[in-house]
Design a protein around this nucleic acid. Structure first.
Length: 121
DNA sequence: CTTCTGACA
DNA sequence: TGTCAGCA
């Protein structure tokens, strides 16, 4: 389940393709980038390159705009999402620490117990 | 030909 | 947001 995410993050589409696939003008796409809503890569010639994830983001931005939200509101929306992601990562980190601590205690038990040599796998 | 940056009748 | 200029 990692390959798919990796491919979706590959930036390979020039702005012209994004225009056709999102129905947005180059002006709008570049403007949303100025507002920090997307951060496409650049090729050797300074041309913007977009990924499938960028596409989804742009389509979502277009929907938000159609729903009446302004750029500022959308920026806040994504800002709050980042906070949630950070908190999730922190939770996972804490759980990793617990798992590591648990494994260490389990291994200590094996080596400190005389009978451990009979049930090693 | 396509894209980029900057500017505004 | 559209559009035009002047580059690359």
């Amino acid at each position: 389940m990692r390959e798919k995410e990796f491919r979706r993050s590959l930036a390979i589409f020039p702005i012209g393709s994004v225009m056709k696939l999102t129905d947005l003008t180059a002006r709008q796409i570049r403007y949303y980038e100025e507002q920090g809503l997307i951060q496409p890569d650049r090729n050797e010639g300074n041309r913007r390159l977009y990924s499938l994830n960028d596409m989804d983001l742009l389509l979502e931005i277009k929907d938000f705009l159609d729903e009446g939200l302004n750029i500022a509101a959308i920026k806040k929306e994504y800002a709050s999402r980042q906070v949630k992601v950070q908190k999730q990562e922190k939770t996972l980190t804490d759980e990793d620490v617990r798992r590591i601590l648990h494994d260490e205690l389990r291994n200590q038990g094996r080596f400190s117990s005389p009978s451990s040599i009979f049930r090693s796998s």
